[in-house]
Design a protein around this nucleic acid. Structure first.
Lengths: 221, 221
DNA sequence: GATACCAGTTTGGGATACCAAACTGGTATC
DNA sequence: GATACCAGTTTGGTATCCCAAACTGGTATC
């Protein structure tokens, strides 16, 4: 594993895990000493994370991307477009057995499962569903969107009822795809994404003072 | 203008302009001497062009991305999803006056216009149409798709009839969006993209021997 | 007290030196 | 003639050094 990949992976995990807060300033020298790498791989890692939208430039200098409520709305529109396209492709396939693997993944979560695992599975559901389409670009788009949503979803206040509803909606989507009902799957997926966005933005909007108190930059919608 | 931006821009232009052929090997030292910059900005530029899909890694080492016919098909599906979503958003806007600017851009091309300009306008049409939606992610996706299609479209053998048909289809799409007919605009755009893909892939498939004779790597569908 | 200014420090951009792995071309061996 | 092998070269990965611009904190001036 090269130093560049090391720094990139660890820095991404620190950002997604909120160990470095949204809006925080980053200096190449701090990262250098933090990970024991020189500035060359550090700069390469920052350039990659910039294209993922996890870090941005602040004039000269780097900052961790803030939580941006307006952006969350735009991402919802974007992912709806690509996820619906992917699901329609998948519903038209002859071999849709990949669905069962995703269903099993959903079922691996129960009341005992830690929140972190629910979070991961909730994102992987959409990524793996897009993968079934066989289209690299749709898959990449969904993965990119989920990465950008990851921190916001982690900060969202979700009760068990919300988790259960999402779980049921995911299963309903799979059932429609499995049956080859493209229109129904598309409708269910659209509704799921819209509802998910509404709850997410509402939760973060209500919580924005608390988030800012934790030192997290939150850009209003 | 920083050296990194300089190298990135010039190298991108050389690749898109086919001054460096698809599949060709690149060495950091050659780029360094070619543009009079040191390896630091050269590496930064390569990392960015890698995310654009214009260069890729070949084990150790860099290569200009080959022309990939299978990829062209996947990109068509991807751009149809995002462009249709963008056009539906735009058709639902109250202020759709931006349409007129795009129409004027189309009309700036006539029989005297050099082929290079037709090529640019043909791509900018789709990019500017996506921009009107106001969604940054849809815009970025369309821009990315057009960048990846650029070289293939340049290599496509297009007669004047084909150019005229594309021009007419573009105007028809604009008219539907201007009238607020989202479904019609979506249908016209879908058909336009599918037809464009079919002609593109067919042309390159027929020409693949000639392309390879010019030293261009062409990956079959 | 407000402000303009200045020296010292920090920071990203760039250039260069060094290294290990991969590649190349030739040679010795069978 | 084919092949295994070895020294020399190339190349990307990394560390380090230098620089100019931006920032900081304090001070002198009004």
């Amino acid at each position: 594993m090269s130093q560049m990949q090391n720094v990139e992976r660890q820095l991404r995990e620190m950002i997604l895990g909120l160990e470095i807060g949204p809006g925080e300033r980053l200096t190449e020298r701090w990262i250098e000493s933090r990970f024991g790498a020189s500035r060359t791989p550090v700069r390469a890692a920052l350039l990659r994370l910039e294209t993922e939208g996890l870090v941005g430039r602040d004039g000269r200098g780097w900052t961790v991307a803030p939580i941006n409520l307006a952006e969350l709305g735009q991402i919802a529109v974007y992912r709806e477009a690509v996820e619906v396209a992917a699901v329609r492709l998948t519903a038209a396939l002859e071999d849709r057995s990949g669905i069962d693997v995703i269903a099993a993944m959903l079922d691996s979560c129960d009341i005992e499962t830690p929140r972190e695992e629910w979070h991961r599975v909730g994102m992987d559901f959409h990524i793996e569903l897009a993968r079934l389409s066989g289209n690299e670009f749709l898959l990449r788009a969904v993965r990119d969107a989920m990465t950008r949503l990851s921190r916001a979803r982690w900060l969202e206040v979700r009760d068990e009822k919300a988790l259960g509803r999402a779980w049921a909606e995911h299963h309903a989507i799979l059932a429609a795809v499995r049956a080859g009902h493209a229109d129904e799957a598309a409708r269910l997926l659209s509704d799921h994404i819209a509802g998910s966005r509404d709850r997410l933005v509402a939760s973060l909007h209500d919580d924005r003072r608390g988030l800012r108190a934790r030192g997290f930059a939150v850009v209003a919608a």
